[in-house]
Amino acid sequence: MTTVLESLNAGLHEAFAADERVLLLGEDVLDPYGGAFKVSRGLSTGFPGRVLTTPISEAGITGAGIGLALGGYRPVVEIMFGDFVTLALDQLLNAAGKFGWMYDPAVAVPLVLRTPMGGRRGYGPTHSQTLEKHLLGAPGLTVLAPFHLAADEPGRLLRDTILRTGSPVVFIENKLQYLLPLLDSAALAEFEVELVGNPQAPAYRLGLRDAPPPGLTMAAYGYMAELCRQAIPPLAYEQEIFVELIVTTQLAPFELFPVLDSARRTRHLLTVEEGGRSLGWGAEVLAQAAETIPGLKVNRVAALDLPVPASLALEAAVLPDVNAILRAAVEMLH
């Protein structure tokens, strides 16, 4: 069974093979180590000279990546932990994201910055965060987070993004999602899955096969989308709550139509995210949905607005799990 990690690794290999302009910059990315999470493993061996292991300089390597992109390359910058993206924020926000707009004619910056977010491994407050909400809404920055379907692999999305983008993309990976096997037809036997949106920024609609019309829309991405999927059968069988799950891969610019389309039918919208509850992705989804759909009932599942603790017991209390999703759904519908 292919895991998300293997799929992303294969996607990188395919991108490197397809276009010589693809380069990788990151800390500890050379073989045999192949990056802290091994997503880049094999690239330095397979494509000598195109993988640059770097000093611990997140801003510097992001800037160097932008410069390479200005010079016609398609660099991929690996930031070892998502928490470190704050160090590169100026380069993303004040440079890469702006060049496509503030200059005339627009300047292409085909840069992909990949980084793993997320907790549940006890790494503590500076190695466990889900920080992408701080990147959302910056003009010119696209933020993607893959879903782990075998029929439309995360590696496919990564590969195509690297090969096709003309503007900077932050590709949000997730540490626990790395380990998940891709959802194949056997794993999804109970489910109906439908692709909505375009393949550059797909969204997926998931529901139980042959179920009654859904009464609740869940919106999620990345690893939390997996937890939502796990919550769907017990909600149906134990609570008779039928869920339509909308998984988005493009967090910014905001792609809301599949969520709105579903929420219009169900009249109930629950957002589920691993980032902190306040001022985050879910808040914006619910605000825009409420502006569009009169009488919509809304709720949020998110982390507490605290740093992510190291102790596994404390971490579990701060980050939302499947039970939190079940509780929130029941609260909304009963």
Binding site: S57, A59, G60, I61, T62, G63, A64, G65, I66, G67, L68, A69, L70, G71, G72, Y73, P75, D90, Q91, N94, A95, K98
Partner: peptide
């Protein structure tokens, strides 16, 4: 651009591209 030092690493990257 208007960020002090903001172009430094980009200049390195552009030079590497050359």
């Amino acid at each position: 651009s208007g960020i002090q030092g903001g172009g430094a690493a980009m200049a390195v990257g552009r030079a590497l591209a050359f």
